[in-house]
Design a protein around this nucleic acid. Structure first.
Lengths: 147, 147
DNA sequence: CGAGTTAGACAGATTATCTGTCTAATCTGG
DNA sequence: CCAGATTAGACAGATAATCTGTCTAACTCG
């Protein structure tokens, strides 16, 4: 018994962990002197793939509407962090890509994520952090209908 | 090698899992006919304890400012889902409590969370779902400076 | 080719969120 | 027990994020 009740807070735990990581990464970007970007913009930018990603896909992955994603991409474009190029495989679509100007942002964020993960591993052990990763990866089949 | 790169997406995995659970719970509430509540409001409401919780604490737990939390609580109060009573132990504070009117919402959400967790257990196994819970709980020491 | 679908743009409205300031109540050290 | 520091929350104002709805151009498939 108690099992059910205990698990009720899994949502909170997921939220807290996610938010802590996100906040640390964002704070590191700000600490690196980049202040013309917001958290919501960063969330979307973080999902841009190496070869560019469509606005629709960004919207799906960030769980916002196309309109919202398009709005945020527009801000990022205006600030010079991304560019939109025609998708050669689909005349309707445009690929959003990171520009060279985004390099420092990406590096600052990635470095901080590494640091946070190191702290987490320090706290719960490498092995269990790996387990966490694996379980969540498996869970993705159920939690992420899209990809 | 590869280890680092692999783990980079832990943030995404946490996000996806959290969002899936949250969305399912919220959709269930809407499906139960409760449509005068928003996701942001529900997020705050979900953190109200059985004996009431202060706005400041709700703000901390939901990771928003006091002002934002107060605003959302105000909407909830207006819709009759919560009430604010003076905190007997602190003259400055007021406790936000769920009203009887919130009962159906809580039940609908809780029931759906149970269902989702059952699906997750189905997919990755009871044991691993327990592991996930434990690891995240341990991690909370590091990810949740407050509580 | 034609019906249905998809990508994204455009317009308009609402909601969520923040910074800043203020008052009242509480806590703390002398 | 008082003065300064802190905390809870209210109030005001501004901005950012997000949604629903509609439209056009481009793709897909039978």
């Amino acid at each position: 018994m108690g099992d059910r009740r205990q698990r009720q807070d899994l949502g909170v735990l997921l939220f807290v962990a996610n938010r802590a990581l996100e906040q640390r990464a964002f704070d590191a970007v700000v600490a690196a002197g980049i202040t013309d970007i917001t958290l919501a913009q960063a969330r979307v930018a973080a999902r841009i793939g190496p070869d560019g990603t469509r606005v629709s896909d960004l919207a799906e992955q960030a769980r916002v509407t196309k309109q919202t994603a398009a709005f945020l991409v527009e801000q990022l474009e205006r600030a010079g962090y991304v560019e939109r190029v025609p998708d050669p495989t689909d005349g309707r679509a445009r690929l959003v890509r990171l520009t060279a100007h985004a390099g420092p942002v990406v590096r600052a964020a990635d470095a901080e994520v590494q640091r946070v993960l190191a702290e987490w591993a320090e706290h719960v052990g490498e092995e269990r952090l790996d387990q966490l990763h694996e379980i969540l990866r498996d869970l993705r089949d159920v939690t992420d209908p899209w990809r």
